[in-house]
Nucleic acid binder design. Sequence first.
DNA 1: ATGAAAGCGCTAACAA
DNA 2: TTGTTAGCGCTTTCAT
Lengths: 346, 346
Amino acid sequence: MGVTIKDVAKAAGVAPSTVSRVIADHPRISLATKKRVKKAMKEMGYHPNANARSLANRSSQTIGVVMPAGADKALQNPFFPEVLRGISAVAHKMDYSMLLNTGETEDEIFEGVQRMVYSNRTDGIILLYSKLNDSVTNFLLEQNFPFVVVGKPSERIDEITHVDNDNVRGGKEITNHLISLGHERIGFIGGSTDLVVTVDRMRGYQIALEEAGLPFLEEYRIHTDFLESGGQQAVNELFSLPDPPTGLVVTDDLMSIGVVSMLEECGKMVPEDISLVSFNNVYLTEVTRPPLTTVDIHIYDLGFQAAKCLIEKVKDKSEPAKRVIVPYTVEYRQSTKQKEATLKNI
Amino acid sequence: MGVTIKDVAKAAGVAPSTVSRVIADHPRISLATKKRVKKAMKEMGYHPNANARSLANRSSQTIGVVMPAGADKALQNPFFPEVLRGISAVAHKMDYSMLLNTGETEDEIFEGVQRMVYSNRTDGIILLYSKLNDSVTNFLLEQNFPFVVVGKPSERIDEITHVDNDNVRGGKEITNHLISLGHERIGFIGGSTDLVVTVDRMRGYQIALEEAGLPFLEEYRIHTDFLESGGQQAVNELFSLPDPPTGLVVTDDLMSIGVVSMLEECGKMVPEDISLVSFNNVYLTEVTRPPLTTVDIHIYDLGFQAAKCLIEKVKDKSEPAKRVIVPYTVEYRQSTKQKEATLKNI
DNA sequence: ATGAAAGCGCTAACAA
DNA sequence: TTGTTAGCGCTTTCAT
């Protein structure tokens, strides 16, 4: 069907190996034959067969990307297309392809990853999540297969190349913002504590509170999986406390949007009654009402750096594990407001 | 490095071809040897090399997925992870892998697609967009390469397998909803008219208007690329018309969210002052305020069906082009409201 | 600087 | 039912 290296060789009057060398841009090759071969390739519409290449080469020029398991809503986060964009940018530049793996369940994901590595279809893997006790991570580690995680690994952290934000510091800074606005009762709404990112952001929240001499109360914290039905109720409970929070740290923009709605449904306005800060700075947060004060974690860069690290690692297996911290910035918008003296204090 | 088919053959005391047959689950093979071979495979930790397979087979068991070119925001639409989920579901079931292609520019996309097809890394392609005069579509057609588009192709529609909603009908139905609520001045806000989906939904809007004897006014229509800065202004203009709309048809949930914000910023409330209907039913629309009345296009199913069609087509090249229409449903929520008699009419 | 030839791991005729 | 063997298209020693 397709035109092969042999055809080109014949047409150019050289050996297949020479053509191969031209493809690989081998140094020791005369400019003359190079030209000639290239011309032949053009004319005949030659394109190398990647499978044959991979087979001979033991390398696929492909990076695998693994999304978290998620039945549905969790995946509907603009975070993912955005990291993919970042990854894709470097993949494209370096002439790598991207193999994508999703799945409903963790087993499905795991199977997929196994396939990726066993089948030799991928040179390395990027994990788009990091959670406690992850079988995929363990598998990759034990196979000594090149991979990098976006986020912070839960264990064996210095054996694993990862690119992350300083979520503790981010959590602290954004909480401090609330504190500096006069808020003293600050609640926290986050995802599962199995997710390292939740834990880190909460830790920052805690530190800020403690440094300010404010209480770190269990009843001020909610952990819910992306505001499923349960979340609604939890928020209600939070605000039926005798001393409900006036400030809220929420670990994800999408959750924030849900929280804002719930609050307004209960007659609490953001930022008039409650100040809310968030994380990620997904595009949406600019156009919601109110626009959200949020920690911009530079999602694109996370992807970009992850891909860069992975390719380095793939090209040189001895590359040591490293940690890349992508700086965050804070977008101050309209979901926060100076706390007024409460009526009862007057 | 890895254990090969030969190793397994030796260990099991059979020929490599026999092992191959076991892998492929060939019918004419005795249960006894099958067992024996499988046992050997297990014990030795054998896994087939996909590249070798693809090479010998001329088939990669991989489907390529092509996202639209998008510098940034446009891709941040939960639509994409959601179609991917659908595609992934059938890919997983059928033991296919997914190769993903994104890019900032159309040229980048096009290059990527060329690579996919020329390199023999993919058996077929799913296009996650459809626009006027698309070079990728033309290329694929002219290469006679199996592909299906999610959405409706702009040309040569009956040569191209595609899975779509009936967007005209959807547009009509949702506009009728507004009309049935008493709205007579209904605006339309959509993306670029290069996108077939925009055109179809607008057509439905137009039909509904005309059937109801309502005017289809140019000044009631806005086309903007996902509410970039320009959008803001356009909406302002729309509402400084002498007779501004009281109802709005917006072609994408994310745009709707932006529009609701803009409106409220100008002191117009949804649904009190303006009723708004939307498309897609992305998860977000349940948790925004107000929750959006929107056409649920069943994104997951679009992906699912597209993948099914593609694999059929890949397995049997003579499979004719077909069109699959995924039924939509309408989610009636709180962004619409019966129009009250206006004061000046009393 | 270039060619000859073996081999990457698997499949598919063709034989037996 | 199973084995033999010749590729699939490319890379890479090893010669020259």
